[in-house]
Design a protein around this nucleic acid. Structure first.
Lengths: 197, 197
DNA sequence: CTCTTTGAACTGACCAGTCAGTACAAATCT
DNA sequence: AGATTTGTACTGACTGGTCAGTTCAAAGAG
């Protein structure tokens, strides 16, 4: 077992427990036990509980950002708003796979103690949304004074909330259906009859 | 000072501290101190830390539900989708006023320990959204097989996320502008040129 | 031989909940 | 009227337990 393996097992154990009980409510002993390592190993690898959590946030945000960025990039000739759909789907898939991370992200991220992580999330994951929206503005698909910052947050939060709710209350609902509903919402097909009328 | 006063002071102190440090990270001593009462008073009034938090969630969810329901009801002759805009604005206003509650709601709500509160939120606040969407379906403003449940969660989460982000990172941004952006997003004016093209 | 992990023992701080006692106002008694 | 009781709200020192972090000798792995 490499050091990398150990760290990943600790990440997984920590994120699950923190999703259930919160950061302060999760003991290092419990994390070590679930990861199947000794308590000393946690401190050998991360130095402190805080440092473990900080590394965990970084790790997750980086993976999330990469997932979204990848979805945003292909196919490269697609219109900005088509790429937007792909990013939403990527985000749903990511939180489908790493559900507890979604809860941790929303639950613990806004504390002043982890402001750095918030900044990285903004620059990373939210940045992917914001760049697509900015591209759309430039391509004339959106009007010039559109508030891409707020819209990026809204889209991200929409997918995040739906992911968590689906996981907790409606795990049987197919991801594709959820995605279809969100895409309709975004593209305004929902209010089509109003627009027409 | 009535008992009601004391309880409200404890609610306010608790929600602020829990928003900053999480439930497990917040001590009863700290809550009592910020509320300006003795520690024993907390237990006299609520019996336990858990019970205080549970009562706090109930209280907040009830207020939120009432705010949204009121916004959904006036003017009663408005179209469902016009009332939807009003509800979104009401939600933004509510979390603007009770910001820490928004963070607590999302941070702590999904733990299995507080499943009852999730249920009440669904039936209450999310129910307001869902009922409007159902009305819209019935009025022919939305197609028949539209997934009102997922859409309700998405709209709620959108407003919630934007509220939190605005409070933490962009408190100077006027609420009306944020609302305008969200309404555009919902009504699909964002992709108007695509629809047209 | 070095890097990593183990697991147990320990410390000192911290914390939820307890409980005996205070304050005081309204009701009841004489 | 004054004296006494009752009930409610609150107080804060105290307790018993918990937990992050330390230390270390021994074992395992590459």
């Amino acid at each position: 077992m490499t050091r990398e393996d150990t760290r990943n097992r600790l990440f997984r154990a920590a994120v699950e427990l923190i999703a259930e009980q919160g950061f302060a409510g999760t003991t290092v002993d419990a994390i070590a036990e679930r990861a199947g390592v000794a308590k000393g190993t946690v401190f050998y690898n991360f130095g402190s509980k805080d440092a473990l959590f900080s590394a965990l946030l970084d790790h997750g945000i980086q993976r999330l950002t990469m997932s979204l960025a990848e979805a945003a990039g292909v196919p490269s000739d697609a219109t900005p708003l088509a790429r937007l759909d792909a990013v939403v789907l990527a985000q749903l898939r990511f939180f489908d796979e790493y559900g507890p991370f979604a809860r941790v992200l929303f639950g613990e991220m806004w504390r002043t103690a982890w402001q750095d992580a918030v900044t990285r999330l903004r620059e990373g994951a939210l940045g992917v949304y914001e760049r697509i929206l900015a591209d759309a503005v430039e391509a004339g698909e959106l009007r010039e004074d559109f508030d891409t910052g707020t819209a990026a947050t809204a889209l991200f939060g929409m997918a995040l909330t739906v992911s968590i709710e689906r996981r907790v209350l409606r795990p049987d609902r197919p991801l594709e259906e959820v995605h279809a509903t969100l895409v309709e919402l975004i593209h305004g097909r929902v209010t089509k009859s109003v627009e027409a009328g």
